[in-house]
């Protein structure tokens, strides 16, 4: 019931922002495109995909909002949406996006005892000229795997980075593991997104299994909306479905509708209900 309602709303207006009545933004619209495709709403999905094209710069990157070409971290999400919609029709946009992604690099930093992770590994950053972090790196890995570039050296290095950033007891912080000798706390959203990108990967250190176990335990009916969506998607990519997931998603959607009515959060919940197949074709 809630899902039909949400999909109906997104179908009417597939170009969405983070908040209700806010300017359309790339990330929520890419998520909307994936939701619509997952639920067979091709016509509306095309409107969302076309919005993303209008946001693409001549260098292939896609900015955070239309007329805001910087930073370019949503490029990966746009590529995912285009590929899922029609990889042939959007072949040029996808190719330009992938070319931009492969030349964009997070900034390596000198390795010191202060930071627990390998600061030399290169993934993707939120903004140009800054360090690589979990979520943008995972989004880029998902996009590159989806377009068949999972074996590219950049993708492989990013996988190594994501494994390196898993906390020893499972789960991920936003990107650090320990700072000045102090282990940080794991969070659900980055863990779920990282696990999506790590689906199908081999891990001799058993880190993926630990993070899956942590995430499974961390998710509950109290989990907030975006975290719940990404957490369930991350588990589903590892073939784990929680028995209460449907109930939690419905409850979360009702909370959004009664609070801020964020189209982005509703789209994320609908995507979680659809499962990860458009994000991780091989899972």
């Amino acid at each position: 019931m809630w899902l039909d309602q949400v999909i109906g709303t997104i179908e009417k207006n597939p170009v969405i922002g983070y908040a209700s009545h806010s300017a359309p933004a790339t990330e929520p619209t890419a998520i909307a495109a994936l939701v619509l495709l997952a639920h067979g709403k091709q016509e509306s999905a095309k409107r969302a995909s076309d919005f993303l094209i209008n946001t693409q710069s001549s260098d292939g990157s896609v900015g955070v909002r239309q007329n805001e070409p910087d930073p370019q971290w949503p490029t990966s999400l746009a590529v995912l949406a285009w590929h899922a919609f029609d990889k042939l029709a959007y072949a040029t946009n996808i190719e330009q996006g992938v070319n931009w992604m492969l030349q964009a690099k997070g900034k390596a930093m000198e390795q010191t005892d202060d930071m627990g992770h390998n600061t030399q590994l290169v993934g993707w950053s939120w903004a140009e000229g800054t360090h690589s972090w979990i979520e943008p790196t995972a989004f880029h890995v998902l996009a590159l795997k989806t377009v068949g570039r999972g074996d590219h050296p950049r993708t492989r290095e990013a996988i190594t980075l994501l494994l390196d950033r898993q906390l020893p007891t499972g789960g991920c912080n936003y990107g650090n593991t320990s700072v000045l000798g102090q282990m940080l706390r794991p969070h659900i959203q980055p863990t779920g997104i990282a696990l999506l990108a790590l689906a199908g990967e081999q891990d001799q250190g058993n880190r993926i299994a630990k993070s899956v176990a942590w995430l499974r335990k961390a998710l509950s009916k109290e989990t907030t909306r975006a975290s719940l969506a990404w957490g369930l998607l991350g588990l589903a990519a590892h073939r784990i479905t929680l028995p209460s997931a449907t109930q939690w998603l419905e409850s979360a959607a009702q909370q959004v509708q009664s609070h801020d009515n964020s189209p982005h959060k509703l789209a994320l919940l609908a995507l979680a209900a659809a499962g990860p197949r458009l994000l991780t074709p091989d899972s």
Binding site: A25, V64, D70, P71, K107, S125, W126, A127, G129, T130, H131, W133, E135, Y174, G175
Partner: peptide, 13 residues
């Protein structure tokens, strides 16, 4: 964060 990241690494750098 949408412009500067999580963490706001543009500032740190």
């Amino acid at each position: 964060g949408i412009k500067y990241g999580w963490p706001k690494n543009v500032l740190h750098h």
